[in-house]
Simulated scan of single mutants.
Amino acid sequence: MTTDTLAEFLLARIDETERMLSVSVDHAEFLGSRLIDGRELVRADGEAKRRIVAELETFEAIQCAAADRDTPLPQALTAAGIVEGLRRAVRHLTVAYAGHPDFQEEWRP
């Protein structure tokens, strides 16, 4: 699995969601169950964002503790750690689309 593949999947789902949400109310009956799935997607998306914020708060606490002790930052806060943190954020966002047939279980955080 590459980050590019994961990112491409996520960006394609975001595009689909934006198109779905731009459909007028007159077309609501045509979409049927897709609207119900849309509500589930909104809940999953909110949960993913809460997890990202929780991870940020954890890393901020680690950073503050290291600064208070005047010690070097742990690996999690180095450049490589920041990239890994962003990867985890994208994984959290992607889980909102776990019901999509192209979703791969290995993408879960």
Rank of each mutant, 00 (worst) to 15 (best):
M1F: 07
M1L: 08
M1W: 10
M1T: 12
M1N: 09
T2M: 06
T3R: 13
T3V: 12
T5W: 00
L6Q: 14
E8N: 09
E8D: 14
E8L: 05
L10H: 09
L11P: 00
L11E: 10
A12D: 10
A12Q: 06
I14A: 08
E16Y: 10
R19K: 13
V23S: 12
S24P: 03
V25K: 03
V25R: 08
V25T: 09
D26S: 08
H27D: 09
H27C: 00
A28T: 15
A28F: 11
F30A: 14
R34K: 15
I36H: 01
I36N: 00
I36E: 02
I36Y: 01
E40F: 06
E40H: 07
L41C: 03
L41M: 06
V42T: 05
A44T: 02
A44W: 00
A44I: 00
D45N: 12
G46Q: 09
E47F: 02
A48H: 05
R51A: 13
I52T: 04
V53E: 11
V53P: 01
A54W: 06
E55L: 12
E55T: 10
E57N: 15
T58E: 13
T58N: 07
F59E: 14
A61I: 03
I62Y: 05
Q63N: 06
Q63G: 08
A65Q: 13
A66G: 11
A66R: 11
A67Y: 03
A67R: 12
A67Q: 15
R69E: 13
D70F: 01
T71D: 05
T71W: 01
T71I: 14
P72R: 05
P72A: 08
Q75K: 08
A76I: 07
A80W: 01
I82S: 05
I82R: 11
E84P: 00
R87N: 11
R87T: 07
R88V: 12
A89S: 15
V90P: 00
V90S: 06
V90E: 11
H92N: 10
L93W: 02
L93K: 15
T94F: 02
V95R: 11
A96K: 02
A96V: 02
Y97A: 10
Y97R: 02
A98S: 12
A98E: 13
G99H: 15
G99S: 14
P101V: 13
P101S: 10
P101N: 11
D102V: 01
Q104E: 15
E106C: 11
W107T: 07
W107A: 08
W107Y: 07
P109S: 11
